[in-house]
């Protein structure tokens, strides 16, 4: 009997936890695949990788990947990751979490980790909504978008995440969608090897909640939407990349600069003392 060959990415997954819980057409699975390929591309020793997630659909990533991983409480992925990195600076520390987790309940941690330039990598699935808890309005929900708690449309302006990340101090900022798998993979690899606080936003379909409330079709319809409406503009001014309902989505690598990290500064003060 022919034995099925092992999937090349199985070594990065806890196969006993598969199948995963993500819905058909969701972008998280694609982003996780890109992440694993990026680790290959960046030639990182998997034993030196830590993945930290918060709560929500994306929060499940930490449970599926076969690295040292931590499924933290809601919003606290970034400070847990900061602790892990400072305890063992040799580690590559990845925060893989969602927009609600990172920018609502955990927003304060994000801006301060970026300001300090802690050498961690934040990969954010932005599906514009709290998916797992039933589709509530989030700080990323576009104006006018319907959610379970904004039935006639959101009236609060959303964050422009790349702009927030850059102005808070991130040294690497990019945005892609699950359509752009090669570019997303490459950006993740760059972020992983970059020294300093790096941020990759992955604009992602949520066919079960967000798309249903807003009549945007299934996962494939959203991928077609990205094909027709994404414009790649590397080095775009992050001020100019907000997203609106039905608007063009500017994607690309926006920021890639060098500056000392938190540990560089701290060691500068304490070395020799």
């Amino acid at each position: 009997m022919n034995q099925m060959p092992e999937h090349p990415l199985e070594r990065f997954l806890r196969m006993d936890r598969i199948p995963h819980i993500w819905c058909s057409g969701c972008g998280i699975g694609t982003a996780v695949t890109c992440f694993m390929k990026a680790l290959d591309e960046a030639e990182i020793d998997p034993d030196k990788v830590v993945v930290v997630s918060g709560i929500g659909c994306t929060g499940r990533v930490a449970g599926y990947v076969k690295f040292d991983s931590f499924h933290t409480t809601h919003g606290r992925a970034v400070p847990f990751a900061t602790g892990a990195k400072l305890a063992n600076p040799e580690l590559t520390v990845i925060v893989f979490s969602g927009d609600g987790d990172l920018f609502a309940i955990g927003g304060n941690h994000f801006i301060h980790a970026a300001r300090r330039n802690v050498d961690i990598k934040v990969f954010c699935i932005n599906n514009f909504i709290y998916g797992m808890t039933g589709g509530q309005v989030a700080p990323t929900t576009p104006l006018g978008a319907r959610t379970s708690t904004s039935p006639y449309g959101c009236f609060e302006p959303p964050f422009n995440l790349p702009y927030l990340a850059e102005s808070s101090g991130a040294v690497y900022v990019a945005r892609w969608t699950p359509l752009h798998i090669r570019r997303l993979t490459h950006s993740m690899a760059e972020a992983i090897t970059k020294k300093g606080f790096s941020f990759v936003e992955i604009v992602s379909p949520c066919p079960t909640v967000y798309s249903r409330y807003n009549r945007l079709g299934d996962g494939l319809d959203m991928i077609k939407y990205y094909r027709d409406n994404c414009r790649i503009e590397n080095w775009a001014d992050t001020k100019n990349v907000p997203m609106e309902m039905g608007s063009e989505i500017v994607v690309g690598k926006f920021v890639d600069i060098d500056k000392p990290t938190f540990l560089d500064y701290q060691r500068g003060q304490t070395d020799g003392k």
Partner: peptide, 15 residues
């Protein structure tokens, strides 16, 4: 703020 299993209460109230 949303949290399971309270969420549906607030969905209905938001309506």
């Amino acid at each position: 703020y949303p949290i399971t299993p309270q969420t549906e209460l607030m969905h209905r109230f938001a309506d």
